[in-house]
Amino acid sequence: MRGILLARFSSFIRNPWVFGMFTGMSILFALIIGGSNHVAERITVPVYGDEVLKEDAIGELLAENDVYHFKWMDKEDLEETIRRGNAEAGVILDTDGFELIIGMESANVDLIKQTVAKIYSEKIQEENLLALSGAATEAEQTALREELKEAKAAPVFEVGNQSFHGSETFVFDNRLHSLFGFTLFFVIYTICYNVMPILIDKKNGVWDRMILSPMKKWEMYVANLIYSFFEGYLQILIIFLVFRYLVGVDFNGKLLGILLIFIPYAFAIVSLAIFLAAIVKNTQQFNAALPILAVSMAMIGGAFWPIEIVSSEFLLALSKINPLTYGMEALNGLVIYNLPLDQLLMPISILCLMGVAFMGVGIHLMERRHV
């Protein structure tokens, strides 16, 4: 087993170009399609209002929002931004209310409206409490506002949502979605092309000569699978380190969790590659089947667009047997929906189960054919 691993690593050092090509394509497509002009991974919403509102409680609450980056600008610039499609919606603020200018219909439009309406509601509640308290001086009103902030920070009741798909709406971040999707997509090629040497060795008789050597058959499989997993995971690691430390994406502080989620996904793809190698007869069929399989998985699994917009029951049923679907679900749940890892055990467990199933069936079929 050690000899196979040394041979594979030596081959990688001498010829890393295919690995570099797929890694570079993942980064390039994520940058081009996802864009690199988001502010702190929040969706930018143009806002217009006078300076009084900007310095008022409304301006402070807008600035403190963790989901949307409310960018103040002139009314003409706001309308031009919406007209060009650079923002999904814009907000024109007034003392007594606000006007929402919609550029394109999406789930974020309703969420933006709810966010701004909630801010106005909080302002009205604060003003009513100040009026009822009888605080006359500015110092008394400031002290009461601080007490209200402390009370909000420590609420009496805590409400939590334990369901990943518990709402009909969904939050969509094009930049993160593109990064996750293209990484999951291109790593399929990297891993599968590293499993293909098993087919080549069997065709050339190398596999038979190794069987006659003191090396055990399970060691031959494990060595190839370990190397395939290593190269696929190395690609993932490089991509996310580049986006974290060079592009400046902070992933909401969940980089370690992302890398942990990719472990069962990479294992599932390695197993899928073994299954594919077992059902094809030669490398030509493998090269023909792999692009069809990878692109189909990406389209059905939600790598190119959110799976939430798919309405076909047939395609949704197919997505349930697609490892990429559960990889996207776990990554979106961790980073975008801010769920802890213990609430993502279902997609992670399904990936592990798929890996075991594909591995077992693939090796069984491969051994039957070899006999």
Rank of each mutant, 00 (worst) to 15 (best):
M104Y: 03
H165S: 14
I124C: 07
M73C: 08
D77K: 12
M104P: 00
I102V: 15
S121Q: 14
K75W: 01
A151M: 12
M104G: 05
E150R: 15
N161C: 07
A136L: 12
E138M: 09
H165R: 13
N86W: 12
E126I: 14
L93P: 00
E80C: 00
G134I: 04
K149E: 14
V91E: 04
E79L: 14
L78P: 00
E147D: 13
D110H: 11
G166I: 07
K113M: 04
L78G: 04
L132K: 09
Q114N: 11
N161W: 03
E150K: 15
S163F: 10
E127T: 07
I112V: 12
E158M: 12
V67Q: 10
R84V: 01
L93C: 06
S106E: 06
K118T: 12
S121W: 11
I124L: 11
E122A: 07
L93Y: 02
I124R: 15
E147G: 05
S133F: 09
F98L: 07
A153E: 15
G97I: 01
E138H: 08
A89K: 09
M73N: 03
A107K: 12
L100G: 01
G160E: 14
R145T: 04
R145H: 06
A153C: 05
A117N: 10
R83S: 10
T95A: 08
E99M: 12
A143G: 04
F157G: 02
L62D: 01
K152R: 15
E60W: 02
V116S: 02
G134H: 06
L93E: 04
A89I: 07
E64M: 13
K118S: 10
I112P: 02
A136Q: 11
V67G: 02
E126G: 00
G134P: 01
E158A: 12
D110S: 11
G97S: 13
K71V: 00
F157C: 04
E64G: 02
A139H: 04
V91S: 07
P155Y: 00
W72K: 07
E146W: 04
K118H: 11
K123M: 02
A131D: 09
